[in-house]
Amino acid sequence: MPKQRPRGRPRGYDATDALDAATSVFWAKGYEGASVDELCRAMNMPRASVYQHFGDKQHLFLTAIDHYAKTRLEPLSQSLGPIGALDEDLQSFFDHVVTLATQDPSTPGCLISSVLSDAAGTNPLFKAELDRRFAALEACLSDRLRQSAEKLGAPAEVMAVVLASVARGLTLRARSGTSAVDLRAVGHAAARAFVDPAGT
């Protein structure tokens, strides 16, 4: 009589690898476009195991968002420093945004700005997650602005929303195929204009 396999993690299961795979599928296909079967194949897990370890598709998506934030967005906050002058740190920040959004042609844009925002719609869980992720980036930018010697034209919290909106716009343009070279030029121009709006 053949031995029964013990219950628990499926053979070949690795949480990080599985989440990386799910993140890539959602990033490339969008929430609605990513089928459960496609996710299971990419994660190398049967459907029952995916549901056991990650819940349904909605909860898997939210887990992938959290994984993405921890593994892909950390360099964005680190790039803000403060390392150099404000315009230099903002240029570095936008460079990291563009790299994230363009480095893999199969996953253009941003999982949060491009995919989660599209999926939010009338889904209260996704809308709350989108608000939380947007607020986290804006808080990070606000912290950097408060450490700057440059005079701001509005409160740091307001200017942070402006900068975050530029970053999201860059990822959306990347999603539609704008080149990294063009996007970096826009990011650098935005950083310079933010610090020196008169162009002096």
Rank of each mutant, 00 (worst) to 15 (best):
Y31M: 02
A28P: 00
S77I: 11
H59Q: 13
R47Y: 13
I65A: 02
T71Y: 04
A42L: 02
R41L: 14
R9C: 01
M43R: 13
V50I: 05
A64W: 06
A48H: 13
L19G: 05
R7G: 14
S49P: 05
S35H: 05
E74Y: 10
G33C: 13
W27R: 14
L62S: 00
D56Y: 06
E38Y: 00
S35Q: 05
G12Q: 04
F26R: 04
S49A: 09
D37P: 00
N44H: 14
Y31A: 03
R9F: 04
A69Q: 10
Q4G: 11
T23M: 11
V50W: 02
L39N: 04
D14H: 08
T63N: 15
L73N: 05
P75D: 14
S49F: 02
D20T: 12
A42F: 06
E32L: 03
D66Q: 13
G8Q: 02
S49G: 07
G55F: 06
A18S: 03
Q58I: 06
D20Y: 13
F26G: 05
T23R: 06
A15H: 14
H59V: 01
Y51R: 15
H53L: 08
F54P: 00
D56I: 08
W27M: 15
Y13G: 01
S35D: 06
R5V: 14
